[in-house]
Write a protein that binds this DNA or RNA. Structure first.
Lengths: 83, 83
DNA sequence: AGTCAATATGATGTAAAAATCATAAATCCT
DNA sequence: AGGATTTATGATTTTTACATCATATTGACT
């Protein structure tokens, strides 16, 4: 169930889900990541494009990391619902 | 062999490898992605933090996508060299 | 409905990335 | 070594995110 992101919208949605899954408020996450609640909100709603560094701060605070993967690659998780 | 990125440095290295694997020059990639060779160079060398939108432009031009994954998760690829 | 917590958003100043010009430096090829 | 290609980088302008203040708005709970 790992999340795919191809746009900032995807990324915002994924970050929001991850945050909620860990029962964090935007303010709590922001303070952990060393940024502002305002910025978390902006990123989650894709109100503005973010900087990569800010995203990495958030990912670290959520114990997540990025995997860079070929789009066409068929992944095991895709096969699961294939039949 | 999918690439993990936790920092902009990781990301720059990965993007450069992907570009070379596809035999593209920075200028070619830049034009495909609708950005500047200068910017590709900056990102690959992590000379400056980039914007997420720019990264997504590059990833799309390279037919790559991001997967957001828990850091602690043990992946099959990790198991491969485990014994 | 009313309260409290959480999220969204207005405004402004600053910092930094991208655009855009250029050329220098490094790499590759024969 | 020399020439061509590729990458790095200097300088300036424009654009935009982030910081920082604040408050409005929404959502949840009793």
């Amino acid at each position: 169930m790992d999340q795919i992101a191809r746009t900032t919208k995807d990324l915002g949605n994924t970050l929001r889900r991850a945050r909620k899954a860990q029962n964090l408020t935007q303010a709590e996450l922001a303070s952990r990541a060393g940024i502002w609640q305002r910025t978390v909100s902006n990123i989650e709603t894709s109100a503005s494009g973010a900087k990569v560094d800010t995203i990495f701060d958030l990912l670290a605070a959520l114990d997540l990391e990025l995997h860079i993967v070929p789009r066409s690659k068929i992944r095991p998780s895709d096969l699961e619902d294939m039949f």
